[in-house]
């Protein structure tokens, strides 16, 4: 175990935040989820949540940060010690702060008729409702999403 409580087997990836690197970024998430959660029903949910986060970061941010630096996405994967053990993916990127306010998002099913259904908000709903925990923080210049799920 490392000094900050992360277990062995941690892995990281950092790449430019653009669709040219989508396959590598999402592929890393899928590979890490499979490596740590294979056979666990929570693998799909965690992958789904992280896909949404990556998608939102790439699609809704300018390609450079306010200080003119290229926007990069970093993904850190780790098993966390403790009981129960948890698998965590941390996704960070350098750009203007954007707090999706997960704590205020609904956890109930939207029963609006399909004809009246608004498209927006579906992704954030899935993020919140597909994993055990998701948090956001801004540590200048990084937006940091932490997604984790308990290993049952």
């Amino acid at each position: 175990m490392t000094a900050d409580g992360l277990s062995e087997g941690a892995a990281s990836l950092e790449l430019p935040a653009d669709m040219d690197h989508w396959d590598e970024l999402f592929g890393f998430v899928q590979a890490e989820a499979q490596r740590h959660l294979q056979g666990n029903a929570k693998e799909y949910g965690l992958t789904l949540a992280c896909e949404e986060l990556l998608s939102n970061i790439i699609r809704y941010n300018p390609s450079t940060s306010p200080d003119g630096q290229p926007m990069l996405i970093r993904i850190d994967s780790a098993l966390l010690a403790g009981s129960p053990r948890r698998f965590q993916l941390r996704i960070s990127y350098n750009n203007v702060p954007f707090d999706p306010q997960f704590e205020s998002l609904s956890t109930s099913v939207d029963d609006t008729a399909i004809e009246s259904r608004k498209i927006g908000g579906l992704g954030l709903f899935l993020i919140k409702n597909s994993v055990d925990h998701v948090t956001y923080q801004f540590s200048d210049p990084l937006n940091i999403y932490t997604v984790d799920t308990e290993l049952s």
Binding site: Y44, L48, V109, T112, I114, R117, L122, F125, L126
Partner: peptide
């Protein structure tokens, strides 16, 4: 996932 997002009715 389809059901959880309320699309199961459609």
């Amino acid at each position: 996932t389809v059901i959880r997002t309320g699309l199961g009715t459609a």
